[in-house]
Design a protein around this nucleic acid. Structure first.
Lengths: 352, 352
DNA sequence: GCGTATCCCGAAAACGTTTACGAGAATAGG
DNA sequence: CCTATTCTCGTAAACGTTTTCGGGATACGC
């Protein structure tokens, strides 16, 4: 005899009553409920999830899909760990558990997701690293599984999402650099078709246009979102016939490699070239010279993700009545020394 | 009508036969099997995991528990992502899926694990960041859930584990420094009771003893396993009445903060003080001067973890007949400039 | 023709839980 | 005292799958 049946036998009550007592249903005597709760605690009883979810079609678990490619993440500190913490803070209030689903580099993300959804292990999902055209969105919409995306996508659909303010960051970075006299501003983008690259580039272009600066495609370098990618970006920018006087980056790790390559060329950020990084990270905080970048709270982002996802689920919509959330997550500028480099009206960058 | 029942009705066969056909059981006509497989593919049928795992008590999913505290991990690059990739490479061969269980900072790891195990969501588990005394090991042993630990522990039990060669690293680091004339060697350890700190310290002490150098407890600094912790370690070491001439670190991120603090003090690693870091990471690779540290393959570690876990599971023991695995994972020394600093016989470090 | 083995397949019982339904007891109202 | 209501609980049917069991068919050896 196992499970709830054993518990019921021990207490000499029916299993139905035990179940009702444990689940806080109204029609059970308060005294018996106490007895049940005590006995359950004493015996260390926990309901079998398979049985429960089979019966009520819900698992009380929510997934978070991420790509587990070592460089796919491209975050210096553990970006996702910070987000998880916030998500869990929300979920734990509703006895929901977070399970992370890391998609291997060797597997197609859409197929992987299909398998995970079919597993019936999760009630809802958070997807991250959305691509320009993201089949996962179509898949999830078709499967009618509630989900939220961390990141926008060009894929149509009326699902909730939250995305970092890449356009705002690009705009402010360019504004700042232009105000210091820069007109040739290099930009480091990811080489894959992850959507944030397009958004960032749009912001960059819009800012240039606002300042009446023509867009030069050769200033856009695409590379892996790692330190090595940053190295390559610097390398390619330095190889241009007319070198840029400033660089804007989209991944925190890129700054590390970029510094390295600049250093090799005898160039110092903030003195010989202006650099604006993306998200502040432990590494960027300790770069020398200090990096001008943007700050955000990972935990708060996680909380927003969790709450917005629940808001899209019928069972929780009354608790989180925000409806369909589509939100641009702001970042705060953290000035550093890396973009102190100003140039005069007609000055142009010269290597040495 | 849903699920396998619908499929059976469509084909006008019994659900039992459908199930047998899909699961590759022998007693089904090869022709009908093909019909079933085609129909299943056409209808996009995937078996409900709850029903399946309820019946056969197995979920074909394996968990990986990690602490989701942003600083608890203490890894510069995404250490775990690399490991996941290797683990999945093994699991995918057996149609097993990896689910990551991030324990929030706000929750007790043991209670969290208890909940996850009781969920019945996973067939086996990998735990990481083992502590000196780790209640999770007792819990899992009692629950008879197959598991492997990434990290040793002083907790008794005959479970499999794989751990990095902290003792070997400490020994080689000290040997190397002593051979360059160092006798006062500071060591940066984690401030929590994670087991690797003790192992590392043991190796450090053993190496000192081997060289006839008395152990000075004041040279042991405990700090958070982050860049900030590294900063603090340098700070405290510099504040000692008799400063060390060399430092050994146990986390990759520590080197970043340590460099920073040394830089503030006008000290350059490899010229004024010798530094040996721990694991090679993207960040350490780009430190200047280059950091002497140790290299390992995250993916291979993941593969070993996966295979060793399966070896401990009855259902897979014949495929992976390695028995109870307890393995020290080697790391390869990567010489850098940071420990080039040599001192003469009677020389002693002086600040400036 | 008969026994026997082999090959398929259907019927039905599990797995552990939740929940709709109804019944008995207790209480209240008249 | 009778009826209506409320409270509490037991019974049993689901949920979707796997798997045991047995039975009908076919083939085979004698």
């Amino acid at each position: 005899m196992k499970g709830i049946r054993r518990l019921a036998q021990e207490l000499d009550i029916s299993i139905g009553t035990v179940s009702r007592a444990l689940n806080g249903k109204p029609d059970v005597n308060e005294q018996t409920r106490q007895r049940v709760l005590e006995a359950a605690a004493a015996m260390g009883y926990m309901p079998n999830q398979a049985g429960r979810s089979l019966r009520q079609g819900s698992t009380k678990a929510i997934g978070f899909m991420m790509e587990s490619g070592a460089d796919a993440a491209g975050n210096g500190d553990n970006f996702f760990l910070g987000v998880f913490d916030g998500v869990q803070a929300v979920f734990s209030r509703h006895h929901l558990d977070l399970v992370v689903l890391p998609c291997s580099t060797e597997e197609d993300p859409t197929q992987y997701l299909q398998r995970m959804v079919a597993r019936g292990m999760i009630d809802a999902l958070i997807i991250s690293a959305t691509h320009r055209r993201d089949e996962r969105i179509e898949l999830l919409s078709a499967a009618r599984l509630p989900f939220i995306a961390l990141g926008r996508s060009a894929t149509p659909g009326n699902h909730p999402w939250i995305d970092l303010d890449f356009e705002g960051v690009a705009n402010r970075a360019v504004d700042r650099l232009v105000s210091k006299g820069h007109r040739r501003i290099g930009v480091g983008l990811p080489s894959n078709d992850i959507n944030l690259g397009f958004v960032f580039l749009d912001g960059y272009k819009a800012a240039l246009q606002r300042h009446g600066i023509p867009f030069d495609p050769s200033l856009v370098i695409r590379a892996k979102s790692t330190d090595r990618g940053g190295y390559q970006i610097a390398h390619e920018l330095l190889a241009l016939p007319e070198r840029p006087t400033a660089v804007v980056l989209i991944y925190e790790l890129m700054a590390i490699g970029l510094y390295r390559r600049l250093n090799e060329a005898g160039l110092r950020p903030g003195r010989d070239i202006a650099v604006v990084g993306f998200r502040e990270s432990p590494q960027s905080r300790f770069l020398s010279p200090t990096l001008t970048c943007f700050r955000m709270s990972l935990r708060d982002l996680g909380i927003a993700l969790g709450e917005s996802l629940l808001a899209s689920m019928p069972a929780y919509a009354d608790i989180y009545p925000q409806g369909l959330v589509r939100r641009i997550w702001p970042l705060e500028l953290v000035p550093g020394e890396s973009d102190d480099f100003e140039i005069g009206a007609a000055a142009s960058f010269q290597s040495r």
